[in-house]
Amino acid sequence: MTARVSFEVNGQRRDLELDTRTSLLDALREHLKLTGTKKGCDHGQCGACTVIVDGRRINSCLTLAVMHEGAKVTTIEGLGTPEAMHPMQAAFVKHDGYQCGYCTPGQVCSAVAVLEEIRAGVPSHVTPDLGDRPKVTAEELRERMSGNICRCGAYSNIVDAMTEVAGSRA
């Protein structure tokens, strides 16, 4: 059974006719051939598939493509290219915020969104006082990034990369 859906990916309108079962992740990877978004677990347990939809990071594996009519999707490819990297991508390279690279696009998308979330005042589990605006601390970054597993264990470097990007924008 198929259904039509149109959404914008990295600023480009895409019209697809898809098996209704197609996840947003598989629509990106298999139909649009945007393979930067990774499939690590396909069950919302790793974060490798993180993309930014309408300004919010989500697990693209746990949502159907057909549910995103009219949405604006930003994937890792939409943030930057090897020749013109997004500041977060450049910071990951500089701080060696990866090893195998497979979780990296999800980490980068999440990292970009996390700094926006903090700026927007969204609290986290470790925000000391719910009445205060959250700050860019290592503890906040670690908690907020915990939905992105890196089995290579680049966490410490990822926090360094994010801290640099957050600092340069402050």
Binding site: L34, I76, T81, A90, G101, P105
Partner: peptide
């Protein structure tokens, strides 16, 4: 820096 780093960081 890793020479393949930009490829990994950009999903390419």
């Amino acid at each position: 820096d890793r020479i393949e780093g930009p490829l990994k960081a950009t999903g390419t």
